[in-house]
């Protein structure tokens, strides 16, 4: 049994150590601009984990993950401006998104919506939020000291502070380390959840809902929990994004963000946690580099790469690379267990 536990945590342990090394060495080895750029990747990695978990380990394909991302950003912005601190608003944003996901999930799962219908509902709800926030430009749309600002967005959102130093805004390097620590913690917690009894039932639901119900599990309740966890993580990422940008506008709810999240998961590998993070890093870095060239429209190049990626590597980047390593290892006479999710 111990060896099984060790196998389960081998890959996750490696990812955690890698994450800790990045947390320590990036601020030392890279300049300010690069640290800021990497902070953005960290936030987006947390965002992608929200979909990677509910889709890859619960079988819930949400086309509207940007809804939680945006809601987290707005709730954090309003709460932080009113409260003059960031720790409690961060927790409020996470809680609000979890509750919103639970309410939405209740109607979807207890209303027996599945597959494409569930995707359509999540997408439509996100677009409603986008439309709604866009129409809050008037002076009457004010919550305490925070004006929602409609299409102009909310400026001057407070930069995050450390919980034990509420009056002192974080430096960029500190912010990178703080966000990276959150990303590592969420990754480890999700990994533990996947390996727990709850996680195994969730995977069974992904595999076959009816069969799981026949074994005595309340499938709708499990799906509600999975979806709420995804909502909470998406909300946390949104709050971090708002604080990182010190600005949030309705485009955070846009279809572009939901689509990007799906693409990152698909490119990195559905059914893994580390793969979608690789997807974020690879595609965002590529997009950034292409954006610096003026030879050709970078969206055309990126789109072409994505088509080839889906056609040639349908499992995604990380699972393909992992399978390749396992194959080479076996050819050399080694034996291996299953890798990390």
């Amino acid at each position: 049994m111990l060896s099984k536990v060790s196998k389960d945590w081998l890959g996750a342990g490696f990812v955690t150590v890698l994450g800790l090394a990045i947390l320590i060495f990036v601020p030392i080895l890279f300049d300010l601009f690069e640290v800021l750029q990497m902070t953005k990747y960290v936030v987006l990695s947390l965002f992608v984990l929200s979909l990677a978990y509910i889709w890859g380990f619960g079988g819930i394909l949400s086309f509207g993950q940007a809804g939680f991302f945006g809601l987290g950003g707005y709730v954090f912005a309003v709460a932080a401006i009113n409260m003059g601190q960031t720790t409690v608003p961060f927790l409020i944003a996470i809680g609000a998104c979890a509750l919103f996901a639970a309410a939405l999930g209740y109607f979807m799962f207890y209303g027996r919506l599945n597959d494409v219908y569930l995707g359509v509902v999540t997408l439509v709800v996100t677009l409603i939020l986008w439309k709604l926030i866009n129409h809050t430009a008037g002076p009457e749309y004010i919550i305490g000291k925070a004006r929602l600002g409609g299409f102009n967005g909310i400026p001057s959102i407070p930069i995050m502070t450390l919980p034990w130093r509420p009056g002192q805004e974080m430096e960029p390097a500190q912010m990178f380390q703080y966000f990276m620590a959150i990303l590592i913690a969420v990754y480890v917690l999700l990994h533990a959840l996947i390996k727990s009894k709850f996680g195994r039932v969730a995977i069974s639901i992904r595999e076959n809902e009816v069969r799981t119900g026949l074994l005595g599990y309340d499938v709708r309740f499990y799906k509600l929990c999975i979806f709420s966890i995804g909502g909470a993580i998406g909300g946390a990422a949104g709050a971090m994004w708002a604080s990182y940008q010190t600005f949030v506008d309705p485009n955070i709810f846009s279809l572009e963000w939901s689509a990007k999240c799906l693409i990152w998961v698909m490119a990195g590998g559905v059914g893994t946690l580390f793969g979608p993070i690789v997807g974020v890093l690879a595609l965002e870095y590529l997009s950034f580099q292409l954006g610096q060239t003026e030879l050709i429209n970078n969206l055309i190049v990126l789109g072409t790469i994505l088509i080839f990626l889906v056609l040639l590597l349908p499992k995604g980047l990380f699972p393909t690379a992992r399978d390749l390593v396992v194959k080479v290892w076996r050819r050399r006479g080694g034996s291996t267990g299953k890798g990390s999710p």
Binding site: I203, S204, E207, N208, R211, G213, L214, L215
Partner: peptide
Amino acid sequence: LPTYRRARMGMSLVPQGREIFPNL
């Protein structure tokens, strides 16, 4: 009663076509 409640009462079905979890 929903399916899971019946299962918890001690009822079980081995369906036609097995329906095991193929990826587990």
